[in-house]
């Protein structure tokens, strides 16, 4: 196990071995895979401020290749990773969130996570205004102009499809029915990399000392 190496060479500096096996118990990852993820975590968490936590700018740098500027989606992803709401992502939070993105994670967990991403104001509903805000944000990001009436029509049709009780907002049940009919909406919720994180990233294996 990982603890037997502790006296010889320090591994997972900043994250205790016991915690590693605890994380392995509560997620789909093995201790080996967690060690590989820890290498990734160390890389991300030291890219700007080397303090053992991922700051929003660091996540932004990793996902958008720039630490600057506002990004609605990045903010939501960061908020969902930051379980403790202390403004940084710690390793256990990183692992908990990535666990949902595991190819074998339950689809209900993915559906729920996606719902929370889109529920910008965290009201328990995805509202029209929120969907509109996200579409507009993407149009701005990609410098695409779309006439207002076309935008309204897209929102209108989306809600006609998703908002079964026609109250102008999508609740969790409606969301579930909707995404199961449009499974491609969950594509972003699965990271194939996570299935075999230790072999997909041989450079991480180099630092890994645990054998299966």
């Amino acid at each position: 196990g990982c603890c037997s190496h502790r006296s010889r060479r320090p591994i997972n500096r900043g994250f205790a071995c016991g915690n590693m096996s605890h994380l392995a118990d509560e997620t789909r990852f093995t201790v080996n895979e967690l060690e590989a993820l820890y290498e990734l975590f160390k890389k991300l968490s030291s890219s700007i401020i080397d303090d053992g936590s991922i700051h929003k700018e660091e996540l932004q740098l990793a996902l958008l290749q720039t630490p600057q500027g506002e990004n609605l989606f990045l903010d939501r992803v960061f908020d969902l990773f930051d379980e403790k709401k202390n403004g940084v992502i710690e390793f256990d939070e990183f692992v908990h969130a990535l666990n949902v993105f595991h190819p074998y994670a339950p689809i209900d967990d993915k559906i729920d996570f996606a719902f929370r991403l889109y529920d910008l104001r965290q009201t328990g509903f995805i509202e029209r205004e929120e969907v509109k805000q996200m579409v507009i944000a993407i149009l701005m990001e990609s410098d695409v102009k779309l006439p207002d009436d076309i935008l309204e029509e897209i929102i209108e049709k989306t809600f006609a499809d998703a908002d079964a009780d026609k109250d102008g907002k999508i609740n969790k049940e409606e969301w579930k029915v909707f995404v199961l009919r449009h499974p491609s909406l969950l594509k972003n919720m699965t990271l194939p990399y996570l299935k075999d994180v230790t072999t997909v990233f041989p450079s991480y294996i180099f630092h890994t000392e645990v054998e299966d």
Binding site: L40, V131, T158, K187, L191
Partner: peptide, 25 residues
């Protein structure tokens, strides 16, 4: 053709694409 707003958001938003995280050098 009907463009689903969520389809648009999930396929276009880089901030939601965590795979980028694994491509950090």
């Amino acid at each position: 053709p009907f463009l689903n707003a969520f389809e648009f958001i999930s396929s276009m938003s880089e901030g939601f694409d965590l795979s980028n995280m694994f491509e950090t050098k």
